[in-house]
Structures are given as structure tokens and as C-alpha cells.
Write a protein that binds this DNA or RNA. Structure first.
Lengths: 139, 139
DNA sequence: GCAAATTAATGATTTATTCAAG
DNA sequence: CTTGAATAAATCATTAATTTGC
């Protein structure tokens, strides 16, 4: 039965945290964290580091969500016909987890370029899309 | 009089920390951190978080140094003659701080490609080189 | 020699990524 | 699949080296 290994917010705690977030709290100071934890202890077990991590994660994931929305709305449409270049060929080479980017290519007409260069550009574009939005500077 | 706003290791403390690092300590636990801090307090003011940050930073910067060495040794040589494509043109478009990457280009013969595509590849390669070594999968 | 001005190191924070519990 | 926890990477900020003009 032992207590669970990680903290889980009670509904009251969650509601309170979300309200604070909505009101603008993002990176509370150590003191604020202790105060918040003390307040919310009224609703159940909770310690400072839980509050700290909650705000870290919530902030990061809200941002991530927005970023993903932008990325989706700007998604580059697949352009060619034949069955060359699927995700396996590219993402398979990268070590990092990829957010399952779905677009295939392409920024520039590949007709005048070698196959090799095409592949390079494709892989690079995917990499950049996954990591940063600075690709827009090219468009 | 006024004490400085940030901790600065005494030579003895620094030597001790480097020795621990050399012996394999990388991410000490909270308990280890407290022990280390207590030991080193003998040589001057120091607290747990200083120890924590020191190992974080030292590990990260050793890694970064090695990565930069590899990058340099694999540096792609500048290939063409005319004065197109200097750092301003590319890095200027990226928001992040760039480690002053010095190579210019290029992976594939650009002779058959449009100027626009050349610029794309150049910028993308720089971006990837700065962020990750996965470019090697292409070579 | 010696400060002011630059530059390089590095302590401290913040953000991104990854892992794994549930 | 969601999300708490942890680690790694990037960034900011302050201090120490160093260069430079006198």
C-alpha cells in the first residue's frame, strides 16, 4: 500500500495553482513557493519542490502547446508525387526524439538539384523545424 | 567591505572540487552535496548550492569543450571564391547566440543549385552544427 | 606602472528535453 | 496519454584577466 512515489495534486490544489498561473504567476521566488505550499497544505500533502516543478512544467507545456499550434498552422505541404523520402529515412538518423513532424518538403524547387542535396535539405529542414522557428527567416 | 554577490571558490576549494570531478563525481546527490560543502567550508564560505552549480557547470563545459573540438576537427572548408555569404547574412537571421561558427560551407557541389538553395543549405548547416552533431549522419 | 575599457571565465537562472509513474 | 521529476542545454550576470592609452 505504501504512499505513492510522487506527489499528485488534489483538485483543490490544482485549481488554486491554475488560478495563480492564470493571474500571472510564472516563476515564483523561493519565498513565494514556501507560502504557496503552506497555503495548499490545507488541502493535502504538498511541499515546496512540488510547487516549483508544477510552475516549471506548466509554463513549459503551455509554451510548447502554442508553439506546436503555430507550427501546425504554418506546416509546409508535401509537394511531390513519387514515394521517395519518408520519415524513416530522415528521422531514423537523428538521435533525439522527434515530435513526429509530418511535413515532407520543400522550400525550393528541387528539380534543379541532385538527389543527395535534396535529402540533405529535407533532413536539415526537419531538424530545424523541430528545434526552432527561425526557418521563417528564409521564407 | 561589502561581500561580493556571488560565491568564488578559494584555490583549495577549487582544487578539491576538480579532484572529485577527476575521480568521477558528476552529479552528486543532495546528501553528497551537503557533505562536500561541509568539508570545504573548512577553507572558506561555501554552501550546498554552490557545489551543486559547480558540478553542473563543470560537467556541461567539459562536454561543450569536447564537442567544440570535434566540430573544429571536422570543420567543413570554405569552398568558393567570390565574397558571398559572410556570417552576417546567416547568423543575423537567427535569434540564438551562435558560437561564432567559422566554417562557411558546403556539403555538396553547389554548382548545380540556385543561389537561394545555397543560402538555405548554408544557414541550415550552421544551425545544425551549432546545436547538434547529428550532421555526421549525412557524411 | 596604473586605471579605464575590453574580453574571457564562470557562478547562477531559466528553459528545453527526457524519463518514467500512474 | 498526462504529468511529476530530473537532467542537460542555453542564457544571463558578475567577476577576474587582459589589453590599451596615458
Amino acid at each position: 500500500m505504501g504512499m505513492s512515489s510522487r506527489w499528485n495534486p488534489t483538485p483543490e490544489q490544482l485549481l488554486a495553482l491554475e488560478e495563480m498561473y492564470r493571474r500571472g504567476t510564472r516563476t515564483p521566488t523561493a519565498e513565494q513557493i514556501q507560502q504557496i505550499a503552506a497555503q495548499l497544505r490545507r488541502f493535502g500533502k504538498i511541499e515546496g519542490k512540488n510547487v516549483f516543478y508544477w510552475f516549471q512544467n506548466h509554463k513549459a507545456r503551455e509554451r510548447q502547446k502554442r508553439r506546436r499550434e503555430v507550427e501546425t498552422s504554418c506546416k509546409v505541404r508535401k509537394h511531390d508525387t513519387a514515394g521517395n523520402l519518408d520519415m524513416k529515412e530522415s528521422a531514423g538518423g537523428l538521435r533525439r526524439t522527434v515530435y513526429e513532424v509530418e511535413q515532407k518538403k520543400t522550400l525550393v524547387p528541387p528539380s534543379s538539384c541532385s538527389e543527395h542535396l535534396e535529402v540533405c535539405v529535407f533532413i536539415l529542414i526537419n531538424f530545424v523545424l523541430v528545434h526552432e522557428a527561425s526557418l521563417f527567416y528564409l521564407l
